[in-house]
Structures are given as C-alpha cells and as structure tokens.
C-alpha cells in the first residue's frame, strides 16, 4: 500500500521543496499581504466613518472578513494544477505518460504539496496581520464549521482550476480565461467585498454560483452572518458544486488525455 502511494507522497514533498526554492517569492507574498491588509483597513475605516454598519455588518466584522479573506487567498489564489498547463504547453506531458504513474494523481499530489507549503505561510502572515489589525476569534464550533467550509471551497477551486487547465489540451493557451476566473472569483465570490453589499436580486443569483463557495460561504460563517441553522444548506450547496464540477473535470480530462493518445503530444 505504501509502495503504491510513495511516488505521490514524494511528488507532494518535492513540490514543497520546489516552492521553497523560490525564497524571494515567499517574502514578497508575505510582504504584499501585509500591505493589502493595511490598505483594506484604511479603506473600510474611511468608508465606515460616514455610514455605520451597512447591512448590519459592523466595522470590526468587515475588517475581520477582509483579513481572513486575504489569508485564505494565500491558498485559494494558487492554481494548483498550473503544472498541467505548463506541461501541455511545452509538450513535456509526454514524458509523464511514459512513466508508470497515474498522471492526474501526480498533478493532484504536486498541487497538494504546493498548497501545503503556501498554507504554512499563513502562520507568519497571520502574525504580521495581527500587528496591523484586530481579527475577531469565533467560538471553536464556528471555527470548525469555517474550516470545513473552507476545505469544501478549496475543492471547488481545485475542480475549477483543473477544468480550466484541461482546456489547454485543445487551445494550449488559457491565460485570458484564467485572468477572467481570478476576477470573477474575487468579485463574485466575495473575496474583496462581501456579497451582502450587492443589491438583493443580484446577490441571490451570484450566491448560488460556485464562486461564492470559495470565499463567501466560509467567510460569512466565520463572521457569523451565516448562522448554525443555515450551515447545512450553505455547505450542501458547496458539496453540490464539488460534485458537478468534479464530473465536468473528469469528463474533460478523459477527453483531453484521449486526444494526446490519439493525436500525439
């Protein structure tokens, strides 16, 4: 059993080691996070000076929301499957198909390693963020619900990224679509502004899209805007999106891999 899994554990470990070699990027990502936390605090304080608690979201809640969203971004902003796109682009996917491994599992393991490394950066980032802003700490039960919802949101993001990178089987180039996805998840997913601030009808429409599963759902659980009696419904929607996107990703992967096998790399 271990022998069968060992290559994938190694892939994950090597991915972590690889990320660690880009030391400069590590420092800049922590540094830019500190700057963004500070700027968002300035903006929200200024906005709230003239308008106390829009939609019942208090200043300390919105600052907590923003800071936690930025920390989550350390993980959610990573395209864990970009390796697939790179490999399709330079044709090196061929070499992976010549090895006795499952290629999608390899990609998953590599992405997991990458995410674990960047996830570890949350600790120093959080320490720095706490120097700049106050972050509310919810009860253990709420935090547990948040963590679970965050994991579900991560899986939604994984499926979205994987599907997107599979498109490179046909087009080789996906950076435009990718940029769009980043904007859409940030704006419509509630990564920058809580969806609560949008007009009611629009808010309901986008809240049911998969993007909201990534940021909005876990964050609203964290600041208490989704109450425990709505957890099941909120996380049910997340699970629904994982299932749907998982099926789509599998279909697209199969078609893409078949294309390599039939048409050549």
């Amino acid at each position: 059993m271990f022998a069968a899994l060992e290559p994938y554990i190694q892939f994950a470990l090597k991915a972590m080691a690889r990320e660690a070699t880009y030391r400069f990027e590590v420092f800049t990502s922590i540094g830019s996070l500190a700057v963004r936390v500070y700027l968002l605090r300035v903006v929200w304080v200024a906005l709230y000076a003239h308008n106390a608690a829009p939609d019942g979201v208090l200043l300390h809640q919105i600052i907590t929301y923003s800071a936690v969203a930025l920390l989550m971004g350390l993980i959610l902003d990573i395209d864990q499957t970009s390796l697939l796109h790179d490999k399709l682009h330079d044709g090196s996917i061929v070499v992976d198909f010549m090895k006795p491994i499952s290629v999608p599992l390899y990609l998953f393991a590599d992405g997991t390693g990458e995410v674990l490394f960047h996830g570890a950066l949350i600790v120093p980032s959080l320490a720095i963020a706490l120097l700049i802003v106050h972050i509310d700490v919810p009860s253990a039960a709420v935090f547990g619900a948040f963590a679970l919802s965050f994991l579900l949101g991560y899986l939604v993001g994984f499926c979205l990224n994987f599907t997107l990178n599979c498109i490179a089987f046909w087009t080789l180039e996906i950076s435009a679509v990718q940029l769009m996805l980043t904007w859409v998840t940030d704006l419509l997913g509630g990564g920058i502004v809580p969806l609560l601030f949008f007009p009611a009808g629009f808010q309901q429409a986008i809240a049911s899209l998969p993007f909201a599963s990534m940021y909005s759902t876990p964050l609203l659980i964290y600041i208490g805007k989704i109450t425990p009696d709505h957890y099941l419904q909120a996380m049910g929607l997340q699970v629904f999106w994982i299932a749907v996107l998982g099926v789509i990703a599998t279909i697209i992967w199969r078609a893409g891999a078949r294309r390599v096998v039939v048409q050549g790399g």
Partner: peptide
C-alpha cells in the same frame, strides 16, 4: 527545479 540527486530519488519511488 530539483537537484539531480533528488530527481533520482523521485525516480526510485516512481519505479519502486
């Protein structure tokens, strides 16, 4: 991105 030695180590695991 890996040192040569680590590539070999990875291949050991891949090919068992």
């Amino acid at each position: 991105d890996l040192p040569l030695r680590e590539s070999f180590e990875l291949l050991r695991a891949i090919y068992r």
